[in-house]
Simulated scan of single mutants.
Amino acid sequence: MVDYNKMYSMLFNKMTDIIEEIQQIQRQTEDMFIHGKDRELVLLKSGKESDPTKE
């Protein structure tokens, strides 16, 4: 018989690990940006806003 509890636990634990890793990487890259010397903010417009032929 399939052990659904074990399957769910494995899946949940692995997904939690991956989410934590992604969050850590996000914090690291945000820190790199904050402490970077040559940062420049660029405002990106959506395709709808930037294409006057669609209005």
Results as ranks from 00 to 15, higher is better:
Met7Ala: 14
Phe33Gly: 01
Gly47Ala: 08
Leu11Gln: 11
Glu21Met: 04
Gln24Leu: 12
Asp17Gln: 11
Lys14Ala: 03
Ile25Glu: 10
Asp3Thr: 06
Glu30His: 07
Asn5Lys: 15
Asp38Val: 02
Tyr8Trp: 14
Asp3Ile: 08
Glu49Arg: 03
Thr29Leu: 10
Ile25Trp: 00
Leu41Glu: 13
Met32Trp: 09
Lys37Tyr: 05
Thr16Trp: 01
Ile19Asn: 05
Ile22Pro: 00
Met7Gln: 15
Lys14Ile: 04
Asn13Val: 00
Phe33Glu: 07
Gln26Trp: 00
Glu30Arg: 13
Met10Ser: 13
Ser9Tyr: 05
Leu43Glu: 08
Gln24Asp: 10
Gly47Thr: 07
Asp51Phe: 03
Ser46Leu: 08
Phe33Asp: 00
Asn5Gly: 09
Gly36Asp: 10
Tyr8Glu: 11
Arg27Cys: 02
Ile34Val: 15
Met15Asn: 10
Arg39Ser: 06
Tyr8Asn: 12
Ser50Leu: 12
Gln23Met: 07
Met1His: 11
Glu49Asp: 10
Leu41Cys: 01
Phe12Gly: 00
Arg27Val: 08
Lys37Met: 06
Glu40Lys: 13
Leu41Asn: 04
Met7His: 05
Met32Pro: 00
Met7Tyr: 11
Glu49Gly: 02
Ser9Ile: 09
Tyr4Leu: 15
Leu44Pro: 00
Thr53Lys: 11
Ile19His: 06
Phe33Lys: 12
Glu55Ser: 05
Asp51Trp: 03
Leu44His: 03
Asn5Phe: 12
Asp31Phe: 12
Val42Lys: 13
Thr29Ile: 12
Leu11Met: 15
Leu41Ser: 06
Leu44Gly: 10
Phe12Leu: 06
Pro52His: 03
Glu40Ser: 03
Lys14Gly: 00
Leu44Val: 14
